[in-house]
């Protein structure tokens, strides 16, 4: 059994969280609140240390020092450093009813940047490359299995797109295609669910490895 106080504390918190499986209780709620508090506190400290300090406060302080020792020649650079910080502060204007409109300026810039950058990138990754990935297997056929595999992906793609095409009633041949699309979707959901079960069990394995190994010393 471990003699490390930290491991005992971690073991207690693990068991406190798992106690919810029996029923909700104050020990569980304490551990849950502690987790949330520590996570948020950690995020705040890291964000301040790695972003606010080196990206905002330090550059402004450096430019102010430069202006005070070298005069007005440093002012354009100081303004250049201050503008993004001021735009960032505008985001907090939402909390002041009279000044809330200021946040729209920062948001507009952020959304404009986001859309401008992500639309072409998504078009490339999710549409053009995926179309290429559907067609290319037909150019690399070496066996009967390759033909089957390429056709299977193509049929799956068309059937699923058919299912999500709502401008035509899902009847007749088109209805059969859409129904085939649902079968492909079911396989996808089944695979996703299987992977999800595996992931959740992995988390339990990790905790039991800790409890049985690091804490109780039962695993060599």
């Amino acid at each position: 059994m471990s003699g490390d106080l930290g491991i005992w504390l971690a073991a207690f918190l693990t068991l406190a969280i798992y106690s919810f499986l029996y029923r909700d209780n104050p020990v569980y709620r304490f551990a849950e609140s502690l987790l949330i508090g520590v996570s948020v506190g950690f995020l705040l400290v890291v964000a301040f240390d790695t972003t606010i300090l080196p990206k905002a406060l330090e550059p402004i302080a450096a430019q102010i020092r430069y202006v005070s020792s070298n005069g007005a020649s440093g002012i354009p650079m100081l303004i250049w450093v201050i503008i993004p910080v001021v735009l960032g502060l505008f985001m907090f204007a939402r909390f002041v009813p009279g000044w809330a409109w200021l946040s729209r300026i920062a948001l507009a810039l952020y959304i404009g940047f986001g859309a401008g950058v992500s639309i072409p990138a998504n078009m490339q990754s999710y549409i053009l490359k995926q179309i290429e990935g559907t067609i290319r297997p037909f150019l690399e056929i070496h066996s009967a299995w390759d033909i089957f595999s390429a056709l299977f992906i193509l049929v799956g793609l068309i059937a699923v797109i058919g299912y999500f095409f709502f401008s035509k009633a899902h009847t007749g041949n088109f209805g059969r295609l859409a129904r085939l699309g649902t079968w492909f979707l079911m396989v996808f959901f089944g695979a996703t669910f299987g992977y999800t079960v595996m992931a959740r069990i992995s988390l339990l394995i990790g905790r039991l490895q800790f409890l049985l190994g690091d804490w109780l010393g039962l695993i060599s």
């Binding site: 990754s125 490359k129 995926q130 290429e132 990935g133 290319r136 992906i153 996808f188 695979a191 996703t192 992977y195 999800t196 595996m198 992931a199 992995s202």
Partner: peptide, 13 residues
């Protein structure tokens, strides 16, 4: 494992 199926299309392409 939860995220695996998200990335299969990128493997294929």
């Amino acid at each position: 494992a939860v995220m695996a199926t998200t990335f299969f299309p990128f493997l294929n392409s």
